[in-house]
Design a protein around this nucleic acid. Structure first.
Lengths: 196, 196
DNA sequence: GTCTATAAGGTGATAGAC
DNA sequence: GTCTATCACCTTATAGAC
């Protein structure tokens, strides 16, 4: 859909980001050209450079924006007293948040290697802050005696991987609702960290 | 390392595959050029086409070879009587096998979307056969009364994701040996499928 | 089996007109 | 802010010499 000339900065900017997010998620950063993004938005390739200095900055901005949203949303969640309830909150929050943004989650895991080293370090630090929240819950639960988790670092890696895996198979309109999925995963997580 | 002319089919073939595997894992299929692979092998780009009809076939062949190895190795494992012991065997096998082939595992998860549809279908079928082995163990354990896993399909997804996640953080020479990692993961898996 | 040369086309990014 | 045109370069794949 080629477009006539004119000024549209306020709507074109978000549309560039949306198109890039969708295309990067579908085909991968390296496989998507600036011309493809421009075609999707309905402008010529040169016009994209009013919204990003280059392709790399576009990827970085998408990932950083996503991580900022994730951390803000987590920090806005209620914080129950006991570690058990906090863990349940984390499990349900993670599944719910990830399933609401499958494309951002996807590129956050797949395109890390396409970030410049400085950009990678920034995203990695944000990711560690989020995963650190889970490890802290596990450590608290271990201290309280509510969990039996000898290695909280490994357990946090294991649980994050398990929960994030939901995005690889869940499809809206399938057999289970998001809440039913979260119930089943919470049951497995609860048992995995228990004294057993 | 540019090379003089000469015939080396028996050694060049494997070297092409090794170089492609390493480069695809490091930078991604779309980001790696045939010239880069050729440079790594020490031949000119045109010579690669003696070993693969095109770049796509090279990727497919790497993934298919990996899946064939995986299934053969799993089918060669001992098959204990009870579901509990079979599950323990699966957990230890999966971690051990995956950590021995980090590059093949990586591209098996990252480059699926870069396969042509027909090639994707082949790899997907092999992957489902492997994951089906885990689901079967869970189903048997549920029938035997050894496990409490209401949804064996979801549980198999959850456990596979958890186990495969080891590859994202494990580094040889780190704090824990592969066997220690497997012990810790088996403990979590065992509890996750228990009556709790 | 490997080389060199080349076809045919795509790439990120910029300059200057409007 | 968007367009057109362009630069300099890279891409996959093939042809034909050796």
């Amino acid at each position: 859909m080629a477009r006539t000339q004119g000024s549209h900065s306020d709507i074109t900017g978000p549309r560039v980001r949306e198109a890039a997010l969708r295309l990067f998620a579908q085909h991968g950063y390296a496989a998507v050209s600036m011309r493809q993004i421009a075609r999707e938005v309905g402008v010529q390739a040169g016009a994209l450079y009013n919204y990003t200095p280059d392709k790399q900055a576009l990827l970085f901005s998408l990932l950083q924006g996503h991580m900022d949203e994730l951390l803000a949303a987590w920090e806005a969640e209620p914080r129950p007293q006991g570690a058990r309830d906090r863990l349940e909150g984390f499990v349900r929050f993670h599944i719910r948040f990830n399933l609401a943004r499958p494309e951002a989650i996807f590129i956050s895991y797949m395109e890390l290697r396409n970030l410049d080293p400085e950009n990678f370090a920034v995203i990695e630090a944000l990711r560690k802050r989020y995963e650190g929240a889970l490890e802290e819950i596990l450590r608290d639960g271990q201290t309280e005696g509510a969990f039996s988790v000898p290695d909280t670092r490994l357990a946090s890696y294991a649980l994050i991987a398990m929960l994030t895996g939901v995005n690889t198979w869940y499809r809206a309109g399938g057999r289970l609702s998001i809440e039913e999925v979260a119930d089943i995963y919470w049951d497995m997580v609860r048992k995995a960290v228990s004294a057993g």
